[in-house]
Design a binder for these strands. Structure first.
Lengths: 123, 123
DNA sequence: ATAATATATGAGTGAAAGCGAATATAGTAA
DNA sequence: TTACTATATTCGCTTTCACTCATATATTAT
């Protein structure tokens, strides 16, 4: 995928928020879905676009698919590295996302608990 | 304008080509129009979007409007600086644009000559 | 004043993109 | 096997966006 297409993929709030969330480690689809407060279909589509642009990659374990940043892309596209590492953290929504992510991680819950409405990611 | 909107503005081939052209100095609209090989209306619209995103600025002199990179934006958004300075030069179309730009500059012609079909920017 | 030119803008069109609801697929568990 | 769950994909809808053509605006020249 060429540079213009990669930038087009980056030019969406939900996808920037996903990159920001994945900066600190992998997450499965249902976790991202709750954190973004959108539905499963939409989340999956955004993850697919990021994957096609080689910005993230995934690993399937049992029923769950875990997504993470493709660090190789960050090394090859330094503007992307700068964006992810030093610019996203200034965006208000991204800050709020990280707060919720931390609460979730500190709660000790896993994605299996989310469907029951436990924890801090309930709607 | 927030980060997402700025990236959306960046996610267009013509606008990336304009930024690449302006990297080496100011150009007026009719010069950019010829270099991109598109029409006047389209060129003006792209320039307007880049201006609204604060990525470029302009100065009107006589009948002509000269656009140039807003270097303040490059200092404030380092990913943008990296993109403009080190990434655009890898894009094939941008390379070709710079070749044509150099030919034009070396020809000694000005934008007033373009309408007569002189020089290397004729259609 | 009028004419000519550079640039901006309005209107319309077609393509692309994001979204929600429903459905399909794949893996797990009983 | 059947039932259940996580994720992906299809469909239809709506919005956004780039583009072209035509027109408006502003500046200069005559």
């Amino acid at each position: 995928m060429d540079l213009v297409q990669v930038i087009k993929v980056l030019g969406d709030e939900n996808r920037l928020r996903i990159l920001n969330l994945l900066k600190y480690g992998e997450l499965c689809v249902c976790e991202i879905e709750r954190l973004l407060d959108t539905n499963q279909s939409n989340t999956s589509r955004h993850l697919n676009k990021l994957t096609l642009a080689n910005l993230i990659c995934y690993e399937k374990r049992a029923l769950y698919v875990y997504y993470k940043i493709n660090n190789k892309a960050l090394e090859e596209l330094l503007f992307l590295k700068e964006l992810v590492n030093n610019e996203l953290c200034k965006v208000e929504k991204c800050k709020a996302d990280l707060e919720r992510l931390n609460k979730y991680k500190n709660s000790g819950l896993s994605c299996e608990d989310l469907k029951e409405g436990k924890g801090c990611l309930k709607l």
